[in-house]
Design a binder for these strands. Sequence first.
DNA 1: CTGTAGTGGAACACACGTGTTCCATGACGG
DNA 2: CCGTCATGGAACACGTGTGTTCCACTACAG
Lengths: 185, 185
Amino acid sequence: MRVTTGTKNRTRQAIVDAAIELLAGNPACSLGEIAAAAQVGRTTLHRYFAERADLMAAVADEGGERLTRAARLAELDRGTGAEALLRLCREYFDLGSLLSLVFSEQTGDCWDAQEEPGVEAVVRRGHADGSIDPVLPADWVVSLMWSQLYAAWSYLGERPGASRHYVLDLLTRTVANAVRGPGAI
Amino acid sequence: MRVTTGTKNRTRQAIVDAAIELLAGNPACSLGEIAAAAQVGRTTLHRYFAERADLMAAVADEGGERLTRAARLAELDRGTGAEALLRLCREYFDLGSLLSLVFSEQTGDCWDAQEEPGVEAVVRRGHADGSIDPVLPADWVVSLMWSQLYAAWSYLGERPGASRHYVLDLLTRTVANAVRGPGAI
DNA sequence: CTGTAGTGGAACACACGTGTTCCATGACGG
DNA sequence: CCGTCATGGAACACGTGTGTTCCACTACAG
């Protein structure tokens, strides 16, 4: 039984990637557009994902894996809470258009249902070690981080000339200041 | 020629209000849902706004007026740049679901095409008087404010028990810290 | 060469939102 | 009471997205 799934997996991945890219810009995107962007016929798309919901589930899965990978790269256990949070910001920022997708699902918490508890634990560590203002609730700090991530990503998208590193610097400065609280140097 | 438009204006306003409320939650909302929320028939809605675009234009007009009113209440000329910016945050926060609507139109700048220059001028005043970190570009500060406004509004919506004043306090603390820069007390 | 896997185009039925027309009903002032 | 006004329901045609079926084409292994 040879593994002919090499081609299938490649096609499937192309569809999911195109879906993430297009859904980020337009959540009401049609399957035809996604198929065209993936350079695949609409028939083929339906062969991999019978219903729209199936594709959405695959997109959610892929997004969740990317988030988990980024969180692992951030080494959340290292340094103060604020330092870990800023490392996470930098890793998440590299996720690109996926940010819009995660953020637009304000209420659809399906995304980081597993991630968020870990991030909130980092914030509480920051509360304890004094690097994060204890007045700010952990879930507030998390939503603050996400809204700034989204703002930074769209800021970058609206200014074709802007450097990715420059915007990332603005983002980390802003989050660091917002979280630090009024007491520090 | 008696002014029978009392009823008409009331109906029209009810439709626009319902549209703002529903479009904030779901930008792809159908006209039928809007009509139902406004407690009018779909026929009546079409009598006031022939096409969907006409209703959208009316919503944009109403939103623009509310934004202008809030900016006037904030007395942007008074105090330091940072103080004026925080007053504006508080007034904007009271706009409620309109925040989602304005924010979701990331690229559709039709909203504050008149407002934004004024706000950016406030930020530059803050740059000059030392109340806002000059390292942060004015348009960055504006997008920072909007993303935090949106985050605060959805934070409030997701926590039915949370006090509006408490969330507003979190918002102003966060924005004040983010904008203040690393140098101050 | 032959069979199979992966693909894509064409066509269809269905659901939904939209914009329109027509007609009936209730309210209000003359 | 009667005419007008604002309204809402029913029905229709149209466009678009969706999910399905059927068939033809290409690449590749045996």
